[in-house]
């Protein structure tokens, strides 16, 4: 969706706020929120892709006026209600009813270490990769209302395939129809001027990790350097 989360290239946010000797968490509720997110993710009640999509769907004014962990709280509340892990009444009254739904598993302290390594979303390919390293490609000019990992600032642009990153669960269909529909993933690199016009820093190059359905072949007359 074309949400406010997709902020690459926006102006007006000022200088980057750097806090010296920043603590890992600024308040206890932040650390509990982080832990709840990981523990609830472990239950399998929802995917990481849906978690991101629900955050992206927060109203723009709410998204922008909330901190990172505040957005996580809002997202967790929405997902907990959606999947029936708790009701609004329970959260307000602090009185739990019996469980209405079961989950695949519950995280115990001795399983926490299994959450540390990055999970692997690589899957068996359904077809050979269409593109090769060095190919010129053009990102599609698409504006799906569902989940997508193709940022707006890179749509309809010509870039070059720099790496092939394997075949992975496709977040777009994981969210829209609970289907991993694995797709090849490529690092696609754009010249700064292709994205931002002739005034862009000529020494800058920007890459995204693009799933194959986001890309189409570009002829040998493409604009990328």
């Amino acid at each position: 969706m074309n949400g406010v989360h997709d902020m690459g290239g926006m102006d007006g946010f000022g200088t980057v706020p750097v806090e010296a000797n920043e603590p890992l968490f600024h308040a206890r509720w932040e650390s509990r929120t982080f832990a709840l997110m990981r523990a609830l993710g472990f239950t399998g009640a929802w995917s990481i892709d849906e978690f991101r999509y629900v955050t992206e769907g927060l109203p723009p004014h709410v998204y922008l006026s909330s901190s990172y962990y505040e957005r996580w709280v809002l997202t967790l509340e929405l997902l907990v209600l959606k999947y029936g892990l708790a009701s609004k009444e329970e959260l307000e009254s602090l009185t739990a009813n019996d469980r209405a739904v079961e989950v695949k598993r519950v995280l115990k302290p001795d399983s926490v270490k299994s959450l540390i390594p990055r999970p692997n979303y690589e899957r068996d390919p359904q077809a050979p990769a269409v593109f090769s390293v060095g190919d010129l490609v053009r990102t599609k000019n698409i504006h799906p209302v569902g989940a997508t990992r193709l940022p707006r600032y890179t749509r309809g642009k010509v870039g070059r395939v720099e790496r092939i990153q394997g075949c992975h669960a496709f977040p777009d269909t994981v969210v829209s129809r609970d289907d991993e529909d694995p797709q090849w993933l490529y690092t696609v690199t754009f010249d700064g001027r292709e994205l931002w016009g002739p005034d862009a820093d000529p020494t800058s190059k920007i890459s995204i990790e693009a799933f194959e359905p986001y890309l189409e072949p570009e002829g040998t007359h493409g604009g990328a350097s």
């Binding site: 979303y121 690589e122 193709l150 940022p151 990153q165 800058s204 190059k205």
Partner: peptide, 10 residues
């Protein structure tokens, strides 16, 4: 300057 936008599972 090479900017990497981590848009997927890398």
């Amino acid at each position: 300057i090479r900017v990497w936008d981590s848009t997927a599972e890398t």
